[in-house]
């Protein structure tokens, strides 16, 4: 009876640890998934495959959000706060008086956030190209 109880508790602990790892970056991953369907977000997904094994060895997802999209940026910051306890490396930086996440590392995935104010947005207006310099937030997710 005792042995059965010990085994049961061991299994529960192992399952708990594994599920903790699996759920570690759920909020951030959910945000990345959400961005796939948004119109005002640019996204690129790069999958690097190993030539020998033909398996994906690294997946890089980058998202570019215009800083004017404050609601979406706030959602990302909230997701960071939710996943922070599961991250084992966290870097925050201060920008314009606001503390924002810069880097989160989890077991097999890491997220980095950077502001870029050298983005040029080209739009066609009456047959002529107009350029507009805009600041963007770039979010990169690297999965190994």
């Amino acid at each position: 009876m005792k042995l059965r109880n010990v085994l049961f508790i061991t299994i529960i602990l192992i399952v708990g640890c594994l599920s903790n790892d699996l759920m570690a970056q759920d909020a951030l991953k959910a945000m990345i998934k959400k961005c796939e369907s948004l119109d005002n977000v640019e996204m690129s997904v790069v999958r690097k495959k190993n030539k020998e094994t033909l398996k994906v060895e690294q997946s890089i997802t980058t998202i570019t959000i215009n800083v004017s999209n404050k609601a979406l940026i706030d959602e990302f910051i909230a997701a960071c706060e939710k996943d922070e306890p599961s991250a084992y490396e966290v870097i925050y930086s201060k920008k314009k008086g606001k503390v924002i996440p810069q880097f989160f590392r989890f077991k097999n995935v890491n997220f980095s956030f950077s502001y870029n104010n050298n983005n040029f947005n080209f739009t066609l207006d009456n047959g002529k190209y107009k350029t507009k310099k805009e600041e963007t937030l770039n979010i990169t997710m690297i999965e190994n």
């Binding site: 977000v41 640019e42 997904v45 495959k49």
Partner: peptide, 8 residues
């Protein structure tokens, strides 16, 4: 090597 990649 980039099979499966895409841009939105």
């Amino acid at each position: 090597p980039y099979e499966g990649s895409y841009i939105i």
